[in-house]
């Protein structure tokens, strides 16, 4: 029994020092939380280390040429991932453009008093349900519904405006445009939800200030609300972009997995993630190392995007102090 250090009379029994058991639970709780935190960090380090070391033979053999060459031939032992890097960035940027635009528009509509609060909440939840649809279901929907639906329009654009590089090929099946479209739907709930949080975080006094200056509702949104929420909106876009870069299953099903670099929206392409997903089952020892190298590049791209995003949010966010 610990003695009462203050020497207070505890005969009433109303105050007691913590018991040895209390102190033990307290200390072990602290140790346990610290353990899990460090375990997670170590696991991350281990994953990166392992992928890096597995990739090392390929890195030393192919060097930077791996990033700039365009053939992927297992039999000849030639590997290059430029088309995949291009496809990853191109599809993600297209998705970011589309999904970002719609996501921000939805966030404005659901936060700026266009609807009664209850309706806002119902719509918000329905849109977030989009995130609950499994990737493979999006892929199936893309193949059997979206592509047949898009094909006549895409081919019309190709025959009539084929001179424009974006429409320079016809859509025969899977391709960049359907893939990017599905990708944009997949990142939409992320962008919409985080942008909504940013708009809802704007204090009422800011809105009052805007209307007090004599703004119309649109002027208030464009000149005050969007600039005020810009840090959060930007964060939403970065997270959406990060999600698009790493998305695998739906893209593997929709993009066509063809080793080509093309500006055309209707041409098939490939991404790093779907390259990894489709090539690992038949990979021999040597190809495994090559795939690990490609995985490192994907990791590096997403890491850079996230760091850049965090950096810019830190600079613009929280009132820009």
């Amino acid at each position: 029994m610990v003695t009462n250090p203050l020497g207070l009379d505890d005969s009433s029994g109303l105050t007691q020092p913590p018991s040895a058991g209390d102190i033990f639970v307290n200390k072990s709780f602290k140790a346990l939380t610290a353990f899990f935190t460090w375990a997670t960090i170590l696991l991350l380090a281990y994953i990166v280390f392992k992928i890096g070391s597995e990739a090392l033979p390929a890195v030393s053999k192919y060097g930077l040429e791996f990033l700039t060459s365009t053939t992927w031939d297992v039999n000849e032992g030639k590997f290059g991932i430029l088309p995949e890097i291009w496809g990853t960035l191109y599809s993600s940027l297209l998705a970011l453009g589309l999904g970002g635009f719609f996501g921000i528009a939805i966030a404005i509509f659901l936060t700026q008093d266009f609807l009664p609060y209850r309706v806002e909440m119902v719509l918000k939840n329905i849109i977030e349900l989009l995130a609950a649809i499994p990737s493979v279901v999006y892929g199936l929907w893309g193949i059997f519904v979206l592509i047949p639906l898009l094909r006549p329009m895409c081919n019309f654009l190709n025959t009539n405006f084929g001179g424009i590089p974006f429409f320079s090929t016809s859509l025969s099946g899977p391709g960049m445009f359907p893939a990017a479209l599905v990708l944009s739907i997949m990142i939409l709930p992320t962008v919409a939800a985080i942008s909504q949080d940013a708009f809802r975080a704007i204090p009422l006094k800011t809105k009052e200030a805007a209307f007090g200056m004599g703004t119309t509702r649109w002027e208030a949104i464009l000149r005050v609300m969007i600039p005020t929420a810009s840090g959060g909106i930007f964060g939403a876009l970065v997270l959406g972009f990060g999600r698009a870069l790493g998305e695998t299953m739906a893209l593997a099903m929709l993009i066509g997995n063809s080793n080509k670099i093309s500006l055309s929206l209707f041409a098939p392409g490939n991404t790093l993630a779907s390259l990894l997903a489709l090539n690992f089952p038949e990979a021999g020892n040597h190809e495994t190392s090559v795939l690990m190298y490609a995985a490192c590049i994907l990791l590096l791209i997403t890491l850079l995007v996230n760091i850049a995003g965090a950096f810019i949010i830190a600079k613009t966010g929280s009132g820009g102090k």
Partner: peptide
């Protein structure tokens, strides 16, 4: 009312500059 507010300015209880 928008033009009313453009001609009659207002200062609020809480300072509320824009994040500009």
């Amino acid at each position: 009312p928008v033009s009313v507010r453009r001609n009659i300015g207002m200062v609020f209880q809480q300072p509320n500059p824009f994040a500009l």
